Amino acid sequence: MESHRSQDGSATTAPGGVVLAEPRGFCAGVRRAIGIVERALEVHGAPVYVRKEIVHNHYIVSELTKRGARFVDSEEEVPEGAICVFSAHGVSPAVHDAARRRELDVIDATCPLVAKVHQEAVRFARDGRTVLLVGHEDHEEVEGTRGEAPDAIVVVETEEDVARLDLADDAPVAYLTQTTLSIDETARVVEALHRRFTNIVGPNGDDICYASQNRQNAVKELAPLSDVVLVVGSANSSNSVRMVEVARDLGAEAYLVPDVDHLDESWLSPGKTIGISSGASAPEILVRQLLDRLKELGHSEVTVRQGEPEDVVFSMPGRLADAEYGRIPRTELAEERQA
């Protein structure tokens, strides 16, 4: 497959070619979480129980299941005393308490950036503020964060939600955001909060994670160069869905592609330039399979569109650190491609 690299986007792709976004795929938190499950299986043997999907990707869950991971919806389903990994999305204190009652051997794979939001929620609630959590009500990350101070946290998703809040305009409030949201949409909600409330504070820095920001920015650069944008990611992956929305907001035809079997060839009219990226929980193997299929369909020329470099690494829990390789997971699924 012929591939060209463009540092500034000045290179063009011939009609019918592919523009491949960078960065794409695994973020540091996802890589760490997957590595934790793999390393736990290596150290402790199967089965290792995982509360919820370790990350929102069906391929990763399927592969880990084959290796001996057992995914459950609740810590109550884990046999007493067994090893239980908490997913990258974080859990509430109530879940930690339930795990202690069952004497589970917990390994917490919560993304450090999500853990930061939890800490901020506790701090703002202790300060006597109503915490307005911008996010999706039913997302696991929001459920975990809200559980830190359920009496003080209110979830808002839209500007209309802000208008409907039953709070005085001078009430002491704080805002936090789910880490995987659309940057532009979140900014509009936060602006609405600032317009309404006169006594409002926010987090130290942006809660939306660096990887979500970088991947959305890469899609913004990709969309004008493409006739159709394909984002590899599972339907329950919030950051992947947001990337599709970002492309569509810019006028591009865009689709979520969980795997190559979901590719609809009717999207690929002859001569169309195809943009490709992938969500932060999507493994590179799914991108490669999609590229191989596109090559079979005549889309063989690939131009790589360079974006923001990423070098963030989150360490493994000490109990799982590999003395030979150090604290960075060096396991098959957790390994990221070399860009």
Rank of each mutant, 00 (worst) to 15 (best):
S6V: 04
Q7R: 14
D8A: 03
D8T: 09
T12R: 15
P15H: 05
G16N: 09
G17T: 05
V18P: 03
V18Y: 01
E22F: 04
E22M: 11
G25Q: 07
G29M: 01
V30I: 09
I34P: 03
V37N: 10
E38C: 04
E38F: 01
A40Y: 00
A40P: 01
V43D: 06
V55L: 04
N57K: 10
Y59D: 07
Y59E: 07
I60P: 10
V61N: 00
E63V: 11
T65H: 09
T65L: 08
A69K: 11
R70E: 14
D73I: 00
S74E: 14
E76V: 09
G81C: 03
I83H: 15
I83A: 08
C84P: 07
C84I: 08
S92N: 04
S92A: 15
H96D: 14
H96V: 13
D97R: 11
A99H: 03
L104T: 06
I107P: 01
I107H: 01
D108I: 04
D108G: 05
A109T: 03
T110Q: 10
V114T: 09
A115M: 05
A115I: 02
K116L: 10
Q119H: 11
R123I: 02
R126K: 15
R126E: 15
V131D: 09
L132H: 11
V134S: 08
H136F: 02
E137R: 14
E140Y: 03
E140R: 12
V142R: 04
V142A: 05
V154L: 14
V155G: 04
V156Y: 04
T158D: 12
V162R: 03
A163E: 13
L167M: 02
Y175N: 10
L176A: 09
T186E: 08
V190H: 05
A192D: 09
R196C: 12
F197K: 11
N199Q: 14
V201F: 08
G202T: 06
P203R: 07
D206F: 00
Y210M: 05
K220Y: 00
K220D: 00
L222C: 09
L225V: 10
V229S: 11
V229T: 13
V232T: 03
G233W: 04
G233C: 08
S234K: 02
A235S: 15
N236C: 07
S240N: 11
R242G: 13
V246F: 08
D249M: 13
D249I: 03
D249L: 13
E253S: 13
A254H: 08
A254S: 13
A254R: 10
V260G: 05
E265T: 15
E265L: 15
S266E: 15
S266V: 14
W267N: 10
G271Q: 12
T273E: 06
S277Y: 00
G279S: 13
A280Y: 06
A282C: 06
P283G: 05
P283Q: 04
P283Y: 01
I285P: 02
R288T: 11
Q289M: 11
D292H: 09
K295V: 08
G298A: 06
G298T: 06
T303A: 06
V304T: 14
Q306R: 15
E308I: 14
V312Y: 01
P317W: 12
A321C: 12
A321Y: 00
R327Q: 14
I328R: 15
E332H: 10
A334M: 07
Q338R: 14
A339M: 06
A339K: 09
